[in-house]
Design a protein around this nucleic acid. Structure first.
Lengths: 205, 205
DNA sequence: ATAAAAAAATGAACTGGTTCATTTTTTAGA
DNA sequence: TCTAAAAAATGAACCAGTTCATTTTTTTAT
């Protein structure tokens, strides 16, 4: 049986995360106040800071927790890839982004990207970078599979190509999150079109 | 003769900008305190806020002011383009980024990018977007010139290609600003390599 | 030149994220 | 069971960006 201390810690952490998720989702990052989150989790503000470095840590934690959920879907797609190059790549991206966006909404993602750039040096920035890198790696894995299946040319450097596609997609996702007007469908169309442009010359003949 | 009020306003604004530039450059965005900037400009804090919306507005103003200086160099390059596709595109990017980075340093640029994403909705975010869009347009202009010169294939959509290259480069610049370790030369090599990868298939045969 | 109106400057007060000295709770040892 | 040490919770205080009611300066009209 785990000690009382451990149990209480786990319980408190869970309550804080739930309270934060609730706040971030309903009023957004900016309007979510640490005071309120603490109150809702039935702890003091200081305690929140014992469990999380700061407000952005709280947001990042929500994102990474949620990632577990999406991971499986992407793995399945890689294991069972479409026969079309663009579909394969976009499939990986959209699996990720559609869930992410629904989960947290644009405003939170704006802050997440912003914070991840500003605090890139810190532990937190590194955590987001690692999280992000997982997506890049998945795209490269997808490219490798497509290469083996004879959809992508064999002389194509998938590592490099993956990096390029990832960067293009990231900018599009930032643009989507940055524009309250832009729809997810528009984002998808833009990404697909760009992927097509870059990939077409490297499709196996 | 301009009125006393106008002259005083112009003078105060200039002093504030100079003080802010000094602070941002020496101690960085985070450590630059509005109190100190106001003191150095010989005005009160409130007055700084009469002239600039907020701290980030101050930073953005510095960037856009400096852009005037770089503009000419890029225009000359477009008017007198190199015979190589990658050189042409990279020339535009590097003219911009080398000056920008020297001018403000990585830390300020991290904050600029971060803020521009977070505050994309606001007047300020729009101002940065416009500033950024000028660079994209210049790249497209360069592509058009290269197309006319027979360096880039005629059937290539320069608008689309320009957008893609711009997004790739922006991500690389963010990565450069985000990593205290990465050198400008490394950034250049990475961008050049990616440009090469995307452009090669579209080089005129 | 003087007074009323308009514009601008001022700095004290507000806000909310974060810290830290103090108090409370839990554990381990006798 | 009782006590000292360790771990954790607490909330008042801190800090810096921002706001706003008040004061000062400048302009305009008489």
């Amino acid at each position: 049986m785990t000690g009382l201390r451990e149990r209480k810690k786990a319980d408190r952490e869970r309550r804080i995360i739930e309270a934060a998720a609730e706040q971030f989702r309903t009023v957004g990052y900016e309007e979510a106040k640490m005071e309120i989150i603490a109150r809702a989790a039935e702890v003091s503000v200081g305690t929140v800071y014992n469990y999380f470095q700061n407000k952005s840590d709280l947001l990042l934690t929500l994102v990474t927790l949620h990632d577990r959920f999406v991971e499986r879907e992407i793995e399945e797609l890689i294991g069972n890839p479409p026969t079309n190059l663009v579909d394969g790549v976009c499939g990986v991206f959209f699996a990720m982004t559609s869930h992410s966006l629904n989960h947290l909404g644009k405003e939170n993602w704006r802050h997440l990207f912003g914070l991840s750039i500003v605090q890139r040096q810190t532990v937190l920035g590194n955590r987001f970078a690692t999280f992000n890198d997982r997506l890049r790696t998945r795209v490269i894995r997808m490219l490798n599979v497509l290469q083996e299946q004879g959809v992508l040319r064999v002389d194509c450097d998938t590592e490099k190509l993956g990096g390029i596609l990832f960067r293009i997609e990231t900018m599009h996702y930032i643009e989507l999150a940055s524009s309250e007007r832009m729809t997810f469908a528009e984002y998808q169309a833009a990404v697909r079109s760009d992927m097509d442009f870059v990939l077409k010359p490297y499709a196996a003949t």
